[in-house]
């Protein structure tokens, strides 16, 4: 049996500005994950912004997992995560005047 792999599109064509969080994603079956952030369009100072991976026991209450995804000038940025339990999300904050229209994908592997 090959290992399961699944990619969920958590956000599509969504504009991040100010504080934001992706929707909770339940993925306890997976043992490794990669968040990909593809920027379709940006305005203002988005380079250098830090997005934080969060974990949760119930999908409601969240804690920083300590992995950070830093936005660069590249089209796609990513962050790898392991040992995360059952729920994952990505949160962040862009400085005033900055925004990013993004596709956020979560690639999961058993």
């Amino acid at each position: 049996m090959v290992r399961q792999n699944y990619t969920a599109t958590l956000e599509r064509n969504r504009v991040f500005q100010g504080e934001f969080a992706t929707e909770p994603y339940e993925c306890g079956w997976a043992s490794e994950a990669i968040f990909f952030v593809r920027k379709l369009e940006t305005t203002g100072r988005t380079v250098g912004a830090k997005l934080r991976v969060q974990i949760s026991a119930d999908g409601i209450r969240w804690s920083d997992e300590e992995t950070v995804l830093r936005l660069t000038s590249a089209e796609v940025d990513f962050a790898r995560v392991k040992h995360f339990g059952n729920f994952l999300r990505l949160v962040g904050k862009l400085p005033k005047g900055a925004s990013a229209r993004v596709i956020v994908s979560l690639s999961l592997k058993e």
Binding site: A8, Y25, E26, W29, D58, N86
Partner: peptide, 8 residues
């Protein structure tokens, strides 16, 4: 997107 859930 759908998820695989154990209804936690």
């Amino acid at each position: 997107p759908p998820m695989l859930s154990n209804a936690t």
